[in-house]
Write a protein that binds this DNA or RNA. Structure first.
Length: 881
RNA sequence: GGACGAUUAGCUCAGCUGGUAGAGCAUCCGCUUGACGUGCGGAGGGUCAGCGGUUCGAUCCCGUUAUCGUCCACCA
């Protein structure tokens, strides 16, 4: 009931009610027995560590738009939701909580107790983030909500681990890995962020045994020299050729180490001699393997020097470095120190400097898994949108290295490998083994857990019941689309793709839609530490979820970053309000049966125009969404609703609506139809307000979200009338502009004479001109009025419009204006004539382009004529004066 | 050292297979016009970073330069 609707749209009063209605309707649920074509997306599971941030709001909006669009198009649509245990991040959060609230560390309470706290954390924050997602209007199938550490996902993880182990693709070995001394765990290569920083390059003299000579090495980490087991030079380096095979004395440690030749050494860098520390540098590790050098680990898990470090035992790496440099200086072995810019790896989570350390860890052998994952992108089976991201993906995949999957943490999937205390046998099995084949029951499970991305990689199918062959899996695997930020293409997308192919034989989706990130209004990354986080829940409270959704959609292109501006939310809140009020207006008149369109023959001029525009917009918006051009689609809907439906159509039909009778009914029906189709088109973008308004309109069906996506009825497309209407609109705009320039008060109405060859159009448009252009009455004619010299003349390509406002005319200004318009029209005319006289253009350009240009030339010709005539009239006035 | 992106109105950004440059905000002028002042009407404002090339025609395609940004990379 329109009278009861408030004057401004109030999202707070609408959103909870509507979401509840959707939930109760069960419309978010996708049925695996429903045989219609499917469309499915798995939600990138948010971490249980925290709360919704702006990036989630951005991403979830994109997903929900696609999901709602496809649902309305009649697909069996699934949006699979869930949360991620986020192994390392969550463990850090829980440890922080323990420290702050209980003054305890994880070690104090032990694994079991710690896990109890972690589960409590998961329950609390996992639920909270889900509740926050719901505020956005996301139409997830909540009945299917999953967690990466629930029973089903655990089974999937174990199955994959065992399979890969059996295939020899998972192995345990000693390698150089990235070690975070703060988190005290191994990290994979991509969890390390490299940052350029200024350090030093220390040149250290290593005395050559039985000689007065020295070999000078250069290093950025002098503390690692404690673990040196060789010095390497290039085999072809003449400077050092005579020393190869000799021995140097490692300073401070007084250990004899060999001089070896290896091509890895760059002769030009530093001194051309490299100290080899196999346990603390990946390259040195390789060199050591080639030369069969011993390994000496000198740092412990906290990056302190261990018992192998002689008198430096117990020093932190920083202190050790300082002392070693001092001591070398003291004994005269520090040749020089120079500033040096180099990359230093930091832990992605805690930002601590990582230490490359040789350590026994579990790895996934990647080469074999990567190759089909490369192929499926190359052959187009999996597409990236925008396409450029496939290059980034391929570049990484083609250079992939083995994936370190073990983490020295408690929160996560414990590695299902058991070692027999008696015979040393390693058992990896789907079920926990009771005894070893040697008979021993003394089995110890690996202490560590798996990289959190190991389980994320299985998300598109572990959530559907895999490894069991469930109906849901058969129905919804592969998914259709994956929507994700570019920052996790390697961490996640790549791993899902090779996992899907590896275990199910098919990539997990056919399209990867890649979005950017939301930055603050200065373009900086949002983060807690810089205090520039914007809480989407606050934004929803202030502007409404629909406004937020539109603000992250409109004017944003896929794959690019965007910024948060409150002004943008305000604009979209205003748009909601505009839609709300247009609907209120429609509802003042709407009645039973108004949802059916009148017969084409009954339609008025403006009805035909708006319906034609509606069909164009429907076509374009549908195409845009199908091509993932959501920003363009949203922009077109904004312009159509505000700029055409509200600004023009509603204004045009106001007189008819209040007149009653048949023409009123036709206008009502056309308005209701256009409005409800607009609501449907807008629904994926602004689900709440559109659903709410739809409830008041005459309609069939239970909810807008389950209504059909608008189609096009060619019986209601009227191109000719629509073009005529645009001519009249042009004239109205021109008159308005002239009146505004001349400061004619809107209250001052004037008789208008329209001189035109399109008399039909303007006869039809008389009433609009009267209403919207301030005419007291309108005469349409083919020839100019006799006393035209005393009238203001407004020129459009289709018409000349004369107004008796002579007393307001500033003749000089009038002449100047007309001359300016004429000059501009003439310039265009000449440019265009040149073009049309160019045989290259007429011969090679498409026919319709040439025709359009010819038509425009004609228009310009007419315009020039009209302008010239008006100028001569001005001259007449001048003469009369 | 590679790869990619950006450079368009004062600001933030769109511009969907090359065919007369757009929006929002900001600015300026005017308005109690029968839903909306979170509104209505109007105005100003751009060598589409520079230079070449392809084309009848380039903001768009190619090359190149500059500035900014991002990702990847084992030169100690």
């Amino acid at each position: 009931m329109p009278g009861e609707l408030p004057k401004t749209y109030d999202p707070k009063a609408v959103e909870p009610k509507i979401y509840k209605m959707w939930m109760e309707g069960g419309w978010f649920h996708a049925d695996e027995n429903d045989e219609r074509e499917t469309f499915s997306i798995s939600l990138p599971p948010p971490n249980v560590t925290g709360q919704l941030h702006y990036g989630h709001a951005f991403q979830h909006t994109i997903i929900d738009i696609l999901i709602r669009f496809k649902r309305m198009q009649g697909y069996n649509t699934l949006w699979m939701p869930g949360v991620d245990h986020a192994s390392i991040s969550t463990q850090m959060k829980v440890e922080e909580m323990l420290r702050k609230e209980h003054g305890l560390t994880g070690r104090d309470i032990g694994r079991e107790k710690f896990l109890e706290h972690a589960w409590a954390w998961k329950n609390k924050y996992g639920d909270r983030i889900i509740e926050q997602c719901k505020l956005l209007g996301s139409s997830c199938d909540w009945e299917r909500e999953r967690f990466t550490m629930d029973e089903g996902c655990n089974t999937a993880v174990r199955e994959v681990f065992v399979r890969l182990y059996e295939q020899g693709l998972i192995y345990k070995g000693s390698r150089i890995i990235n070690w975070c001394p703060q988190c005290t765990t191994a990290l994979s290569d991509i969890e390390v962020e490299h940052e350029e920083s200024e350090g030093c390059l220390w040149h250290i003299k290593y005395p050559i045994k039985d000689s007065d000579e020295f070999l000078t090495v250069a290093t950025t980490r002098p503390e690692t020299m404690l673990g040196d087991t060789a010095v390497a030079v290039h085999p072809d380096d003449a400077r050092y050729a005579h020393l190869i095979g000799k021995t140097v004395i490692l300073p401070l440690m007084d250990r004899e180490i060999p001089i070896v030749a290896d091509e890895y050494v760059e002769r030009e860098f530093g001194t051309g001699c490299v100290k080899i520390t196999p346990c603390h540098d990946p390259n040195d590790f390789e060199v050591a393997a080639r030369h069969n050098l011993p390994h000496i680990l000198v740092l412990n898990e906290s990056a302190r020097v261990n018992e192998n470090g002689g008198k430096y035992n117990g020093f932190t790496r920083e202190d050790a470095r300082k002392r070693i440099v001092e001591d070398l200086t003291g004994i005269g072995l520090l040749a020089k120190t120079e500033k040096h810019i180099h990359n230093v790896g930091h832990c992605e989570r805690c930002k601590t400097v990582c230490e490359p350390i040789s350590s026994e860890q579990w790895f996934v052998s990647m080469k074999e898994l990567a190759s089909p994952a490369i192929e499926c992108v190359k052959n187009g089976q999996v597409k990236f949108v925008p396409e450029r991201f496939s290059k980034i993906y391929l570049n990484w995949m083609e250079n992939i290295r083995d994936w370190c999957i073990s983490r020295q943490l408690w929160w996560g999937h414990r590695i299902p490998a058991f070692t027999c205390e008696d015979c040393g046998e390693v058992i990896v099995a789907r079920e926990d083994p009771a005894a070893c084949k040697c008979g021993s029951e003394r089995l110890t499970q690996e202490d560590g857990v798996l990289d959190t991305w190991f389980s994320s990689a299985l998300w598109p199918f572990s959530t559907l019941g895999w490894p069991e062959d469930t109906p849901a899996l058969r129905r919804f695997y592969p998914n259709s689309v994956m929507v994700t930020g570019y920052e996790i293409i390697f961490l996640w997308i790549a791993r899902m793709i090779f996992s899907g192919i590896g275990y199910l034989g098919k990539p997990p989706f056919h399209t990867v839609v890649v979005h950017g990130m939301v930055r603050d209004n200065m373009g900086r990354k949002m983060s807690k530490s810089s205090g520039n986080n914007v809480d989407p829940v606050d934004v929803i409270n202030e502007y409404g979820a629909d406004a937020l959704r539109m603000s992250v959609t409109t004017g944003v292109s896929l794959g690019n970053d965007t910024r948060y501006f409150p002004e943008r939310c305000e604009t979209m809140r205003n748009f909601c309000n505009k839609l709300w009020n247009a609907s209120r207006f429609a509802l003042m008149y709407a009645g039973e049966g108004d949802d059916t369109l009148p017969a084409p023959s009954e339609l008025a001029f403006e009805d035909k125009w708006i319906l034609t525009r509606l069909s164009h917009v429907t076509r374009e918006v549908t195409d845009n969404i199908e091509r993932y051009e959501l920003g363009v689609a949203a922009g077109k809907l904004y312009d159509f609703v505000w700029g055409e439906l509200c600004d023009w159509y509603i204004e045009l039909i106001k007189p008819r609506l209040s007149s009653g009778g048949g023409t009123s009914l036709t206008a009502r029906k056309t308005l209701c139809h256009t409005l409800s189709q607009s609501l449907a088109l807008l629904h994926p973008f602004m689900p709440y307000i559109t659903e709410e308004i739809w409830r008041y309109l005459p309609h069939d069906g239970a909810a807008l979200m389950t209504a059909s996506w608008p189609g096009i009825n060619t019986d209601y497309v009227f191109e000719r009338e629509s073009a005529d209407m645009e001519r009249v609109m042009d004239a109205i705009r021109a008159v308005r502009a002239r009146r505004a320039e001349m400061r004619v008060p809107p209250s001052k109405k004037a008789h208008m004479t329209i001189v035109t060859d399109s008399a039909g159009a303007f006869e039809n448009g008389k009433a609009y001109i009267a209403k919207l252009a301030g005419a007291s009455d309108v005469t349409v004619t083919r020839s100019a009025p006799d006393n035209s010299g005393g009238l203001v003349c407004i020129v459009t390509p289709a018409a000349r419009i004369f107004l008796p406002l002579a007393e307001l005319i500033d003749l000089a200004a009038e002449r100047a204006r007309l001359e300016k318009e004429l000059a501009s029209a003439t310039a265009d005319f000449e440019k265009l004539s040149l073009k049309l006289n160019n045989p290259g253009f007429t011969g090679k350009a498409p026919v319709q382009v040439v025709e359009a240009e010819r038509a425009r030339l004609e228009e310009l010709t007419a315009l020039r004529g009209k302008l010239a005539e008006s100028l001569s009239n001005i001259a007449n006035i001048t003469l009369k004066d």
